[in-house]
Simulated assay, not measured.
Amino acid sequence: MSCGILPDRVDGQDTDRLRHLLTETGAAILTGLAATPDALVVAAALTLGHRLRQVFPYRSRPSRDAGPVHLHADSFDVVVHIGGVPVRRRDPDEDYVFIQAVQTPGSGGESFVADAYRFANDCGRRDPDPWDFLTSADVDLYGKWADLRGLPAVPRVGRHVEHHYRCWHGREGHSGERFVRILTVRSADAR
């Protein structure tokens, strides 16, 4: 069984179709929205409506002639101190990610997603040993990513499968300039 998703394109204003696609496949490619940071928040509001609970600061990701970014979810827990007050910038219960392509590279750089639910369910049926590890063994989820892009060096220990994330994502290596913005949010569905 393949866990890859080839998302359908949908006009950002067609909220009924958009929400149906997300329920069915976990991903959609929104069209018709401007390539501005505000459009990411608009996309989140259109997608989730009254279920949108928290919007985290968007992140800009420029890259040039870069290698691949392996399959991952963005559910890190990042707290910063602003004027001595702890402020959560990322949350382990983020359950939606919006990625906006601002500039595409000369070659490569395609984003990809995988249905985490489908993978986990299929793994549980076909091979109970990896399933047991993924759902019961505590591991350092930051691992080699500590201190990367501002992530804390403090380990975050947990199970691979413990969040509400449906989609894992990554991108292929590329040559040329690539620029995306990433917005993560928490919905009413998160724990």
Rank of each mutant, 00 (worst) to 15 (best):
L134Y: 15
Y142E: 07
D189Y: 11
P57S: 00
R149C: 03
S107P: 05
H70N: 10
P37M: 09
R90E: 06
K144A: 09
H164S: 08
E24P: 05
G26L: 02
V180M: 06
T25D: 09
L18E: 08
H20F: 11
R51F: 05
R17M: 03
C3V: 15
P130V: 04
R89W: 09
G143C: 06
T36W: 09
V85R: 15
G49T: 03
Y165N: 13
H70K: 13
I99D: 00
F98S: 00
P62N: 00
C167S: 12
L52C: 03
T15V: 15
L183Y: 03
N121S: 08
L21R: 00
F98L: 11
L46Q: 15
E172P: 09
L33H: 06
T25N: 08
H50K: 14
Q13K: 14
T135E: 02
A44P: 01
F119L: 11
S107T: 15
D115G: 03
Y117F: 13
D115E: 06
H169G: 02
P130N: 02
L33E: 03
S111H: 07
L71A: 08
T31Y: 00
D91K: 07
T47K: 00
G26K: 02
V10C: 11
V78W: 10
L40F: 03
D138Q: 13
G67M: 06
W131R: 01
L71T: 05
P130W: 04
D14E: 12
A146M: 10
R64W: 12
A66G: 09
R64D: 03
R53V: 10
P68W: 02
H70Q: 11
A35S: 11
R166K: 09
L40T: 00
L141D: 03
H169E: 01
D122I: 05
I182P: 07
C167M: 14
Y117R: 15
R166L: 04
G109M: 00
L18Y: 01
G176P: 05
I182E: 03
K144F: 04
G4L: 10
L141P: 04
G26I: 02
R191I: 06
L21P: 07
S107I: 12
V69M: 14
F112C: 03
L40A: 01
V185R: 02
P62W: 00
A114E: 11
D127W: 14
W168V: 07
L52V: 02
T184E: 07
R53K: 13
A43H: 01
A188L: 11
S111D: 06
R53E: 10
R186N: 04
A45M: 12
V85F: 08
F119G: 06
G124H: 08
Q54F: 09
P152F: 02
F98P: 00
G176Y: 12
C167H: 05
A34M: 10
D16S: 12
L183W: 08
R159F: 06
P86Q: 05
D14T: 11
D77Y: 08
Q13E: 10
G84S: 05
D95W: 08
G173Y: 00
G26A: 07
P68Q: 12
R149D: 10
